[in-house]
Simulated assay, not measured.
Amino acid sequence: MDVFELSRGWKIAMYIMLGLFFAVFVSLAIFCFIDPSLKRVMVFMLPFSLVAIFFIVCGFLQIDEKVIVDNYSIRKESRLVNREILLNDVKGYRIDKNYVRILPHEGRGKKILASTYLSGINHLKALLAQRYPDLDVEETQEVYDEAIRQTGGQDAQKLMKQAKTEVYTLTGITVALGVLTFLYLDWYFLALFCCVPLSLLLLLRHKGLVQLDTSKESPLPSIFLIPFIAVFVPIMRSFHMHILQYSKVWPLAIGIAVALTVMLWLCSAYLNKKRGQYIVSAIFMSLIFFGNGYGLVVMSNAFFDKKGYEYYETTVTDKHISKGKSTTYYLTLEPWAHQAGEERESVDRSLYEEVGINDKVGVYYYEGAFHIPWYQVGRAQ
């Protein structure tokens, strides 16, 4: 019999961490009734604190969990969850960053999750690999076999090479256009956006040899990176384009996202739409499409506006740097012609370091090609 559980060091660390979180959220819940300043946000903070406390308590109950493998079954024992799968009822396993997932045949029990932080987890992986299939690898092979079958008996290797060449070429073009779009407000952003529908057409053209997204074991190329680059770069490029009215942005962005989502569905005719990975990727891709739409609308609104700008000046009342995975520089500005109140705006580092509190900055106001007013903050003239 093999027993897998957290080491003593991990248990102590978990108890300390969960204890600190428990104290924080209990304090927040109590202060919602004591501190008058928190009563206005009590409707949000109190439920959030209670939900957090619930999950922290569940975490305490799971710290002593054990996964036990003997000659008859695989069991998970804890104060919260107790499950068992007979060895002959195990269908296979999946491994991700946080868990080893042991899955039974349908109707033969519930899956067992073994944390990758359990002591001896590599031995558990080896035990499973000796007896059961890796379902991720098995699914990947099924997708590959189905894609080859749909080629109609033609030279599969030749078609695979052509599919990879086209996907990698379009990805390279997307990267190049992404760099140009980030550096220059020019037609490059339009060409970058066009890479998204072109990538979807590759799904249809290659009849399953090109996938929406793939696992690391799959030999099939994926288009997932192309829409991601096409959303990331324009949004970064438009970070300092401050929109005054979003009422005309959202309908256009949603319309573009819906159109691309419909195109994705139509171009996925040769893909297995029932696969869990496809469903998750398609949902995530729809969110990316919304970002594609937003970037296209904001960039087009600025690029096709040929009326020029109106110049205003305002005063800096405060400065702030936000540090995290990236550093963002903010200036708080006094009201000006098209802004009724004080507003904190993101600016580039050079402008942030150049101006001080009570200094003047320039506000460059544009009406926008789609009548979506926007402005940029720069140096005073």
Rank of each mutant, 00 (worst) to 15 (best):
S247T: 12
N98F: 08
F189S: 00
M241I: 10
P36S: 10
M160C: 06
L244V: 10
R379G: 06
K207H: 05
S300L: 08
S215Q: 09
K110M: 11
A163P: 01
E142S: 10
Y132T: 00
I95E: 10
T328G: 01
I95N: 04
G378M: 06
G153E: 04
T169R: 11
L287G: 15
P47C: 01
R149F: 11
L351T: 08
Q130C: 12
R149P: 09
G356R: 05
G308F: 13
I223Q: 05
V137T: 04
V377T: 05
R379Y: 13
K39W: 10
G295A: 05
Y117R: 15
Y294E: 14
Y132A: 01
I254V: 15
G293P: 00
E106P: 00
F55A: 11
E354K: 15
I121M: 08
D145M: 08
E310Q: 13
K306W: 15
Y312V: 02
C267M: 12
S326C: 02
E84R: 15
K274R: 15
V262E: 06
M263W: 13
L28D: 12
W10A: 13
L252W: 12
F304E: 04
L18F: 08
F182A: 12
K360M: 09
M236Y: 01
L87I: 06
K111I: 12
S238N: 13
Q162W: 07
M1D: 14
N292T: 09
Q157T: 01
K125R: 14
V316H: 02
L266N: 11
E353D: 15
Y375M: 03
T116W: 10
R237N: 08
R8H: 12
I53K: 03
G255C: 00
V175G: 10
T214H: 02
V90L: 09
S346N: 13
K319E: 03
S199D: 01
L113M: 15
R349S: 07
G153M: 03
V249S: 07
C195W: 03
V298C: 04
F290E: 07
R275W: 07
V43D: 13
Y352R: 07
L20P: 01
E217R: 13
V179R: 03
I34V: 15
L212Y: 04
L135C: 12
I95G: 01
I173T: 11
R94E: 14
P251W: 13
L20N: 06
I56E: 06
W250Q: 02
Y188E: 15
A302T: 07
I256T: 06
G153V: 00
